[in-house]
Amino acid sequence: MRRPPGSRLLAAAAALLLIGGAAGSAAAASVEVPAGLSAGVAVLDRQTGTFTEQLNSSTRFRSASVVKLLLALDHLWNRGPDHTVPAADRAWLEPMLRGSDDDAASDYWSDNGGTAIITRMVSRLGLEDTAPPPTGYEGYWGYTALSARDTVTIYRYLLDSAPVPVRDFVMENLRRSTRCASDGFDQHFGVAGAFEKPWAVKQGWSGFSYEEGTCGPPRTAATTDPASPAPAAAAADVDLTRPALHSTGTVGAGDRSIVAVFTLHPVGTSYGKAYTDVGRLTRSLNVPGATRPAGWWYGTWSDHVNVRPGPGTGNAPITQLPAGVEALVGCQARGEEVHVPPYTNEWWAYLPQYNGWISNIYINSPDNRMPDVKDC
């Protein structure tokens, strides 16, 4: 681990973003898209039935794992008069919805007709922009075309029209989204990071190196959604080349708001950078019913920074941060002195969204103790 020269001298104003304030507030804001991103956004207030945000909402993106919502709904369509979800289905659907398991998605794709799944669900839900993967890529479920507005339509069906057992099963699993996805990526970006619970999320990512998985040992890339598409795929109607990171779901009591954020990033963008940028975009949105977490957003540096259960290295890490990701700091405290030559720091930052601590030595701050951050 090598700290970039001068990183300790970064101005605090450039390193943090205070987003505290009145609990439960969701002040109106225009969409703020970080430089280099292409974004499609839609936010629907279900209480009023109106959109509070729309930006390129009909633009089609490759869905990555967001398409797993359609795979699940198609599989559960017409499952009998009581619409119960059999135990055998739960064993596969739960990992697919909570941990975004690719193996389960691949099985459903091959067993239920592949592209025919998308054709059926387009007709059933009246989707306007959704389309199967392009010719030559029929086996790549993550190349299904999807837009922000169609994603809102999917959630509206799920919440307002789906049989109650189906709605409750799918939404409960989305509420129990695991921080560490099945392939090793930290999937609590965007909606899951910008707002306090209650939320329910289905995320999507594609085009990032599988070596960037940070929650646990990364798995081999799934053949259905490869990290590096063939160059010829760039000529398709939907961009299959730039890294994609999407955050979708519901926010607030009673699933007050539906949020869909689709983004494409410049080729070569790291997962931590994309994670940070999607977080900044999502925090700019007007999301009725949302509660925004109090704290300070600070940049971090280094690869695989360990998040510990306390301000010391004596206990095994809870998880690891994506490299260079921006993290919410709730407070700071003195703890074990950490040495990363030529630096030494005895201060530790508490990250409430991880319920754990990292050494301040990995925080981009002008001093060992972060300015303006309260003591724990």
Rank of each mutant, 00 (worst) to 15 (best):
T282F: 01
Q320D: 09
G324M: 03
W296Q: 08
G279A: 03
V278W: 03
L285F: 12
P293V: 09
V267R: 15
Y298R: 13
G335P: 03
C331T: 06
T282V: 11
H339I: 14
G356R: 15
V305A: 00
V287A: 03
G324I: 09
V329A: 07
R334F: 05
R334Q: 08
N306T: 12
A294Y: 10
G279Y: 05
Y275D: 01
I358H: 11
G272A: 02
G310C: 00
G272D: 10
N286R: 13
T276F: 05
G335T: 02
A316H: 01
Y298S: 08
G279P: 05
L328R: 12
A290P: 08
G312S: 10
Y298P: 02
V307Q: 04
C331W: 12
G268P: 00
W297P: 00
Y271D: 00
V287I: 01
V338C: 00
A349L: 09
P341I: 06
H304I: 04
I318R: 12
L281R: 14
E337S: 12
S284H: 02
T276A: 10
A349V: 00
G310S: 14
V305G: 09
T313R: 11
N315S: 14
L281Q: 07
N315R: 11
A333V: 09
W348C: 05
A349W: 06
N345H: 09
N306Q: 12
